[in-house]
Amino acid sequence: MEVRVQNIRKEFGRFPALNDVSLDIRSGELIALLGPSGSGKTTLLRLIAGLESPTEGTVFFGDEDASRKTVQQRNIGFVFQHYALFRHMTVLDNVSFGLTIRPADRRPSNAEIRRRAGELLDLVQLSGLEKRYPAQLSGGQRQRVALARAMAVEPNVLLLDEPFGALDAQVRKELRRWLREIHDRTGHTTVFVTHDQDEALELADRVVVMSKGKIEQIGTPDEIYDTPNSPFVFGFIGQSNMLPVRIENGQLLMGDQPVGVSAPGEADGAAHLYFRPHDIELLDGEGSISGTVVVTRRVAGTRHVELDIGATGTKVEIELPPEKFTSDRARIAFRPTRWKLFRT
């Protein structure tokens, strides 16, 4: 089901957690809410769920205004950061809970409930563990029980709060891929919150980058990475360098040195130049950014070189193929090949 959030504002006391946030989520989409802690991403998720109510604004489920509906009426599936499994119930009872507590007229027969719970446990690859208690499961297994439990009620939308936050790196990666598979198979509209950009970029159809209670950018992982639309997004996603520059007649200058980048049509004035460490080319000589090598590090297939570029004492980091860098090089000159200017 499609979910629309319109001009949502949420205050806790006097502190605004969300400020005029609007978001359209298409049916069947897998969306990531990405941001540093305190950016309001979890609040937005809980507002969609109905666990919080907005100070202002509306949440639509399809064409229906869901804002005044209780969390029970919204029929959502929510997976909590620490799973919130019912510790006194078996895995099977946890998964069937949402169906067994329904009033008699909407409750499937016991056999049907058991069949559906069994099917879901099959889907999350936990068949055989029906009789276990949550305390007897590993973190990854609990996570999957929580997901099966949320899906059992056939929710309009599946909401996951930091679904992999409490797991170790290896399990995280596996579960990430597996969640994508489940999503492709079941087609639930899914929103998940994360502070891990790799997770968001790898998993989501679209990423919503949030900061300080506002949405900074919405886009596909490619758009977010390749064309960040604000200094925050540029700095938050991936690695980036920032240099203070001046624009004169369409040429970028750092101090009095040309940077080797032209921006025809840009008005004169001060700006910040952003570029990624790998979006550069090495040059010899003038008309480029040059600096002395401070330190180099080999990270997997690339060499990271930290340069001190003189005048302002600014440091930049660039990434080179290892064969392009020999240890006797003390100075390096380069220019950015992909970059973006933000006016100051």
């Binding site: 969390v71 029970q72 006194h88 809970f97």
Partner: peptide, 25 residues
Amino acid sequence: TSDEEAALSLGASGWQTFWYVTLPN
């Protein structure tokens, strides 16, 4: 409160949440 929230999100009423989730805990 997350156990209670989980129960509510699964459609349980206040009483059901108390009876099946809070009290056993």
